[in-house]
Every structure is written in structure tokens, then in C-alpha cells.
């Protein structure tokens, strides 16, 4: 009865670049998988690693964080600071053996096509890994 598993991916998109890039992908009618749930943030530098962990805790199978290209940050250096935090988190998750669930990308406001490609590749990567071992624990009653 239950529908086949589809990956749920939480995407933190920076307001100035990646969110606008996603918008452009939309208005340009570029097709990409509908598995992402977008959360708009002011800057990739404002994404606390806890947000990413929290998304995984709440049942996301994967997380995508996307910001402006290095040098293009609206706040000049937010994404440089973000890159350091993300790198440590990325390596730590790799150490735990959870490689491939958390992804980072730089997508500018003019890269609608690229945004679609990034999402497609993230969805494909998470699909290959299957449901998150952290999400699988949850067994509440559903509407009968």
C-alpha cells in the first residue's frame, strides 16, 4: 500500500545566489527532481552545522547547502567562513561513514541550469544510498 521510497532532501539556499538560481530554474521551466524542500537563508555563512544535523534528525535522507561562489558573497566573506565549517562537518561525516548524504554547492543567481544539475546529482547520490539510517527509526501512526 505504501508508495515506493523517495529521498527527502532539505536544501538550505542562500537568498542572494542559490535561491535566485532555483527561481531561475523554475521560471525557465528546467526540469529537476521534486525531492528537495527549500529553506531560504540569508547567507550560507548563517547555516549553523547544527541545522544540517537537525535536518538529518528530523528525517531528511540528505541535505544540500548552497551559496554564492567564492568571492561573490553578498556579505563579502560569509561563504568563505561557511566553507571552513562545512569542510569540517563533511570530513567528520565521512569519518562516521555517512558519506554522500550532506552536499555543498556554489550556485549563482544566473545558473538556473546548474541548479537543476546540482539537485539532480544530489538526488541521484542520496537515492543510491537509500533511506537514512537516522530517519528509519521513526515509526508513528499514520492516517489510516
Amino acid at each position: 500500500m505504501s508508495s515506493p521510497w523517495e529521498p527527502k532532501i532539505v536544501a538550505f539556499l542562500c537568498h542572494w545566489c542559490s535561491y535566485a538560481g532555483a527561481d531561475l530554474a523554475g521560471v525557465s521551466r528546467i526540469q529537476y527532481p521534486p525531492n528537495i524542500r527549500v529553506i531560504r537563508v540569508p547567507c550560507s555563512g548563517s547555516v549553523d552545522p547544527l541545522y544540517i544535523l537537525k535536518a538529518l534528525r528530523e528525517g531528511a535522507d540528505g541535505v544540500l547547502v548552497s551559496g554564492c561562489h567564492p568571492g561573490d558573497c553578498h556579505y563579502l566573506s560569509g561563504n568563505y567562513f561557511a566553507r571552513r565549517k562545512f569542510f569540517v562537518l563533511y570530513e567528520l561525516l565521512r569519518f562516521l561513514g555517512l558519506e554522500g548524504r550532506v552536499h555543498f554547492s556554489w550556485v549563482s543567481a544566473s545558473e538556473g541550469q546548474r541548479f537543476a544539475e546540482v539537485v539532480t546529482s544530489v538526488v541521484a547520490a542520496v537515492e543510491k544510498l537509500g533511506p537514512s539510517p537516522l530517519a528509519g527509526e521513526r515509526k508513528y501512526h499514520d492516517l489510516a
Partner: peptide, 17 residues
């Protein structure tokens, strides 16, 4: 639970970086 412990310990690890 595993998922809560995961966030606690990884969150702490990131705070300690």
C-alpha cells in the same frame, strides 16, 4: 535514540572544532 544522540555528539564535535 540514535538520531538524538547523533545530533548531540556531532553538534558538540562541531562546537569543539
Amino acid at each position: 535514540t540514535l538520531r538524538d544522540n547523533f545530533v548531540f555528539h556531532l553538534g558538540r564535535a562541531m562546537h569543539l572544532a
